[in-house]
Amino acid sequence: MKFGVIILQVLLIHLFLFLGAAAKAIIPLPIPASMFGLAILFLAICLKMVKLEWVEKGANWLMAELLLFFIPSAVGIVNYDEILSFQGAEIVFLIGISTILVMGMTAWIAEKIIGKKRGGRHDDGNRNRRNVLDVSVGKTNWR
C-alpha cells in the first residue's frame, strides 16, 4: 500500500518533468528540463493546484534514495582508462583540494553573515520569531 502510494506520487512528479521538457522546448534559455519541472511543481503547490500530500511521500523517497541513481554512472568509470591511471590520482587530488576550498569558503561566509544577523537580533527583539521558525523547520518530515 505504502509502496503503491510512493510509485503513484513518483509518476506524478514525473509528469512535471515532462511539463518541464515542454517548457524547455518553448523557452529558449539554457535551463534543463528538470529545473523547469522543479519551478512548475513549486508554482503548482504554491497556487494550490497540487496538494503537498500528493507528492510529498514520492519526493521524500526520491531524495532519500538519491545515491542509488548515481550508482550506474559510477560503474561507468571503468570506461575511462585515464581515471584509473596516474592522471586519475591527479584528478582525485584536484577535486579534493577544490572541494575543501569550496566547502570552507561557503561555510565561513554563511557563518559570518548569520553571526552578524544574530548580533543585531538581540536589539530588535526578533528572537521569538526565530524560535517559531526553528520549530517550523523541525516539523519537516524527511524520511
Binding site: 514525473h14 512535471f16 528540463a33 519541472g37 503547490i45 504554491c46 507528492v55 519526493a59 519537516t140
Partner: peptide, 13 residues
C-alpha cells in the same frame, strides 16, 4: 535523477 531534481520543489515549499 530527473524527477529527483524536480522533487526538491517540496523541501523548498
Amino acid at each position: 535523477l530527473g524527477p529527483a531534481t524536480v522533487a526538491f520543489a517540496v523541501p523548498i515549499y
